[in-house]
Design a protein around this nucleic acid. Structure first.
Lengths: 235, 235
DNA sequence: AAATGACCAAATAGTCTCATCTAGTCAGAC
DNA sequence: GTCTGACTAGATGAGACTATTTGGTCATTT
């Protein structure tokens, strides 16, 4: 019995290729913006045929979604790796990392140069972290452990506004009035800390809660990314 | 010797008419947006002929500038009337008043529905207050009097980011996640207070500094408005 | 002098046509 | 089974032209 046809590809190689394609897409989108980046460009740049891209993703938008999800996973991993012990450290890190990742920054502030027609998309980057109940649970734990005050309340809005404000403001300032990214991250951490933390030295329990929360977020993000990468197993 | 020609108009009546025209413009711009609001519309609505409008302002944009300046004067007067004693009260008031004045809010957050093609205009509403050195002087006085801390520094950026974040965030939230305007103003005051104030009961000197600053701002704003209203004395 | 509104040039919006581009498919090559 | 790239339908854009709108002017009226 002679085998016919090409043997099945190594799944690992497929994943690697998917990443190569996303690398190309990221590069092109950052350079030309979403609207001006064509699938042909991405195919050429990543050295595969156009059809191959459609073996991975059903549509152009699916590819973009995967790209963003990958960015998100990497961002969360970076944050997690820095082992923040408090909410303020968590979001200081969040901002620092985000400012270094132009695609994420673009989705947060709605940069139409980069996002093109997708600008009016779900602007979830901040709200996504917070929504889903997990964040509320996390905050509740911190309050319980005395790391976070009850006042002034509405912590989610406070954090969201501070983060958004600090990340978006530089866009509407003269070049020379802008602070360095590192400094901005520092100020975010300081502001959030003063806005809602008790100031007590952070307990091991609070640190645990923060890391648990991040682990959960990383986990979720990885799952979503996995869904976006394995086109073949799509429903 | 017989008088000829129409007697000069009462300047007070002229001013009143200018305000009527601005009232009409404000109404129309809020309803239809800047792009869709024509000079003819404004003339009709305010009950004057088109030419009359051009007796007051040289161009459409001049009229719009006057409108914004009037809004700014009124806003500053409102803030001043509430006699804020601290920076946090000052900006809490600022946000409360601004949220109630859709035109100012639009210029701050760059609402293209309202501003139309002017969206990319100087986004100064926040920065304007702070720029010009007067604000820095004010802050210096507060620090001197022990009302404001030296840390974390970059107070202007901190305040600008907080204000902008809290005012702009609601736009990208689901309706039901938004807080009432009053609550937002409260949170801004609280956040700014904790971010940079010492917490000491505010001294008379600090209050004086705040009111002086506001008086100066009102003064400047009134002058600019006056320039915008008296077309005839234009250079 | 002060106010008006008919008037005009310039911008803007709308229409139609033709050319180009591009997301997604698929028959066939490996 | 895996991958390719020629192919297509529909979108997008350029161009040319017309119709409409509108900011701004100014001769005339009060």
């Amino acid at each position: 019995m002679v085998k016919v046809g090409r043997p099945p590809q190594d799944p690992a190689r497929q994943l690697e290729r998917a990443h190569r394609i996303l690398d190309a897409a990221a590069e092109l989108i950052l350079r030309w913006g979403y609207d001006k980046t064509t699938i042909d460009d991405v195919a050429k740049r990543s050295g595969v045929a156009k059809g191959t891209i459609y073996l991975h993703w059903k549509t152009r938008d699916d590819l973009f979604a995967a790209l963003l999800r990958r960015e998100r996973v990497r961002m969360l991993e970076d944050i997690r790796a820095s082992e923040p012990a408090t909410v303020s450290e968590l979001f200081g890190r969040f901002v620092a990392v985000m400012l270094r990742r132009p695609l994420l920054r673009a989705t947060l502030v709605g940069d139409s140069e980069v996002l093109g027609k997708l600008t009016r998309m779900k602007r979830q980057s901040v709200t996504a972290l917070e929504l889903g109940g997990a964040f509320d649970t996390y905050l509740a734990r911190l309050i319980e452990h005395g790391a976070v005050r009850k006042e002034p309340g509405d912590h989610t809005t406070v954090i969201g506004s501070i983060v958004y404000g600090f990340v978006a403001l530089p866009d509407m300032l003269r070049e020379e009035a802008r602070l360095p990214d590192e400094r901005i991250a520092e100020l975010v951490a300081d502001t959030i800390g003063r806005a809602m933390e008790t100031g007590r030295a952070s307990s091991a329990a609070a640190t645990r809660a923060t890391l648990d929360f991040l682990d959960a977020m990383v986990e979720i993000a990885r799952h979503k990314l996995a869904d976006s990468m394995g086109a073949k197993e799509r429903v």
